[in-house]
Write a protein that binds this DNA or RNA. Sequence first.
DNA 1: TTCCATCTACTGGTTTTCATGGATTTTTCT
DNA 2: AGAAAAATCCATGAAAACCAGTAGATGGAA
Lengths: 211, 211
Amino acid sequence: MLPEKITLAIVDDHPIVVEGLKLLLLDKPHIDIVGSFQTGESCLKFLNGVSVDIVLLDITLPDKNGLDLCKEIKQKHPETNVIILSNHSERSIIMQALQHGASGYLLKNASANELMDCLNTAIRGQVALSEEVKGIMARPSTIMPQGFPTLTAREKEILPLIAEGLTTADIGHKLFISPLTIETHRRNLMQKFGAKNVAELIKLATLHGLT
Amino acid sequence: MLPEKITLAIVDDHPIVVEGLKLLLLDKPHIDIVGSFQTGESCLKFLNGVSVDIVLLDITLPDKNGLDLCKEIKQKHPETNVIILSNHSERSIIMQALQHGASGYLLKNASANELMDCLNTAIRGQVALSEEVKGIMARPSTIMPQGFPTLTAREKEILPLIAEGLTTADIGHKLFISPLTIETHRRNLMQKFGAKNVAELIKLATLHGLT
DNA sequence: TTCCATCTACTGGTTTTCATGGATTTTTCT
DNA sequence: AGAAAAATCCATGAAAACCAGTAGATGGAA
């Protein structure tokens, strides 16, 4: 059932995490770490040349969003399994990850054993979630405070500009569109986040690392 | 000069980071990891019984703020060196850490080599900063005008309320003072942070963990 | 005790946001 | 091709934020 070694790539901008993972996996005979990267781009480039069984992917990367990267990887290399490695325990983010094609989701506070379990589960083609994540997903989503809504590209573009202190007019000018449009986006953002005003919007967005 | 092994404790709520660090340091003959903790409290308890040379401390912990913990450790155990391990690259946070008695500051994107360097530097009683951190500290603070202003008690009280989405009137009502006063505080806050409006104010405040 | 920082409060005016409630055109996915 | 989602644009009025300046009260530090 396992004719070859599992090939694994790691994408995380924290060398300590990367080196830790490497050391953790070094003595597992059936796992072969073929690459580790600090940026999404470098990983994508690598995957164009080499086929990899599993990519361990951090959500917060310097150059791009890990979830977007996940989607991209699955589009170009459907045979590759992506396991998200993240700090975010929000149910909505986990949902997003799975919708973007991730085969698994691990919190960084998972143990080494859980990591191994998840790798084995994922390679069998099943969805691999760490214990805590399973718990989060099991909870009914009736009330989901601080859920992380799905933002459109434009919204993701505008949100940081608001956080920078630009006014509606400023942003309209900057993006060459009507300030009225910006207002609509701003309204939609607040609605999506369930924020009463910009202050709360920006707090939530900043906490989710979106600014 | 180094008659004994350096004793080291690790406080971080991410097992993978902890295990990675352990493995990284396992083959260093002069380093002895005597404990690892996921919460500030458990670490404090441990330090009451055992003397430790260096504590590697994450800033974001489940039960308390790492900077406060640092201060507490230095008060109770001045001989212990604390090295902060963090994701935050804001100059002001680094300053705060040093003011709270930290002997060093490492970004999590530091390499394993840098980690070793910093441990050795700290044990010699010197301030240990990773390369990137040195760069941040070297930049004159003209660009980033007074990174982190000192807030009065009242301001610290009001700031999170603004971030929660309360209006000026709401806050005035809540604190039993005139909304006009809140406006003054709000103005002063924005001025201190050099923010153009609440959005920017809240972004900066949230990044500094003040909300 | 004098001085300073802070908290408090106000006037009066301008700018921006927020809530409604549409509407049209592009893009994207199926 | 057709449906759905996203992006664009608009108007109006009320609410809130923002700006600039002033100033009394208080409590702690020099």
